[in-house]
Amino acid sequence: MGVDFIKENHVAYVTLNRPEAMNSLDPESVQRLAEIWSEVKKDNDIRVSVFTGTGEKSFCTGTDMKKTPPPEECMAAMWLRDGQPIIPDMKMWKPIICAINGYAIGGGLEMALACDMRIASSKAKFGFTEVKVASLAGLNGTQCLPRAIPQAVAMKMLLTGELIDAEEALRVGLISDIVEPAGLQELAKKYAEKIAANAPLSVKAAKQAVVMGLEMPLDQGIAFSHLLWGVLRDTEDRKEGFRAFAEKRSPQWKGK
């Protein structure tokens, strides 16, 4: 159906698989993505996800223009199925690593911006070209891009429709790592396994503290972080973490 989904060692691997169409999204892929993100959110065994595309040319170029609904239909409806958005839920609290293997354009970049970590192939390119076709990055691009990189750079991308390469994306902070194409999936798996090995409640709390805290004044964000620390203090996993450290063994997390 254009999207592959497997689970392994507490990690969900979500892969766009339409390389013949630059991993753009047709209605079937949209439907499948909505189902997958819903399952990731509900499955307690999943602690972290890796989101990527097939091949070395493109992560995702957004909507498949050849299969775009007619203008009289609401375009947002294609990106929303049964109340479930295909854009990863930034308040799901389970981290998502986006491994950008090529072009991330339009809706593809918007999906990447909804992820918590973005790493990229040296061949990756990023941009919002909607202004070239009388449209707008209307899902989250106009809001998330200037929150991820300097506003002036975001405005340049949104208003000119120009693409930036991986080196520029790293320089402005859009991504955290660049790697040669052959090593991208290995690096994503490495990061995912490191996250999955940590206490799941702590990982969720760390993400929640950052995402929610950025919506608050600093003093309120700090107070919210203190509250989350207090919630974690008496959990079984925190006690297990201290015991495991003292006994020089790997902890056995229960998520409690």
Rank of each mutant, 00 (worst) to 15 (best):
H10Q: 05
A12C: 12
P19C: 04
M22T: 02
E28K: 14
L33T: 09
E35T: 09
V40H: 01
R47V: 11
T54M: 14
E56R: 13
T63R: 08
K66M: 06
T68S: 14
T68I: 12
P69K: 07
P69V: 05
M75K: 10
R81F: 09
Q84G: 00
P85A: 14
M90L: 07
M90I: 13
P95L: 09
I96Q: 04
Y103P: 00
Y103F: 15
G106P: 05
G108W: 03
A112Q: 03
C115K: 03
F126C: 09
A137F: 03
G138V: 03
L139F: 06
Q143H: 08
I149G: 06
Q151T: 12
K156C: 00
V172G: 00
V172S: 01
V172Q: 04
I175L: 09
S176D: 05
S176E: 13
P181A: 13
G183R: 14
K189F: 00
Y191D: 04
I195G: 07
A196L: 11
S202A: 15
K204Q: 15
A209L: 10
L214M: 13
M216Y: 06
Q220P: 00
I222T: 08
I222D: 01
G230P: 02
D234G: 05
D234E: 10
R243M: 14
R243A: 15
A246E: 08
E247H: 08
R249I: 04
R249Q: 07
S250P: 00
P251A: 03
W253P: 01
K254S: 15
